[in-house]
């Protein structure tokens, strides 16, 4: 397909760039349901770039296509590297097809609300709480979005790149009583 673009000239192709779709039938069926998601394989692994508002719909489609399990949900912080700072990363697993799929959804720092996928996969519960705790992403529709790893009264979201790297003093108020 890339060869065709060069032969036919780039002007027409620039207006309507041909959308690359995965070869794998199941992944192709998911990709064809949405016009906005982009096929972006990385080091031989299957990845979709998804707009953040579509996350739940794409996950729902993947769930119906046979991805039974959400194995991982995490966030990457591209501080000062990209315009939309965060990226939500969801790893799905299909046991019946022996297939993995990763969804990556850029999230800008001024709008950190993302649809929760807990209604589809109950296993996303802890992962979304962790993402909220350490990165400050807000998951709309999560049943119990509270801090999970840090104490409740903690300030800030520690895994953000602008959070300090080194140690902080003991926050516990009884610590000065050491004799």
């Amino acid at each position: 397909m890339a060869g065709d673009q060069i032969v036919e000239g780039s002007e027409e192709q620039a207006e309507t760039p041909a959308r690359t779709l995965p070869d794998q039938a199941i992944l192709r069926s998911i990709a064809e349901q949405f016009t906005d998601i982009e096929w972006a394989p990385s080091t031989g692994q299957d990845v979709f770039m998804v707009p953040k508002d579509l996350v739940r719909d794409v996950v729902q489609a993947a769930s119906e296509a046979g991805f039974e399990m959400l194995v991982d949900l995490t966030v990457t912080d591209y501080f000062r590297r990209r315009s939309s700072r965060f990226e939500l990363v969801i790893n799905l697993l299909s046991i019946q097809h022996e297939l993995r799929l990763r969804l990556r959804a850029p999230v800008p720092v001024d709008d950190v609300r993302v649809p929760s996928v807990v209604p589809i996969y109950s296993g996303a519960n802890f992962y979304e709480r962790e993402a909220f705790d350490l990165f400050g992403l807000i998951f709309d529709g999560h049943p119990d979005l509270t801090r999970i790893l840090m104490p409740d009264e903690w300030d800030g979201h520690p895994l953000r790149k602008d959070y300090g790297m080194s140690s902080v003093p003991v926050q516990f108020k009884g610590s000065h009583q050491v004799k």
């Binding site: 790893l149 840090m150 520690p158 959070y163 300090g164 790297m165 080194s166 140690s167 902080v168 003991v170 516990f172 009884g174 610590s175 050491v178 004799k179």
Partner: peptide, 19 residues
Amino acid sequence: TGGMFNNYALVQGVDQIVP
């Protein structure tokens, strides 16, 4: 001493809390 984890999460030495 906190060991190799010089970060936000750990108390850097339990002697800050108990003798």
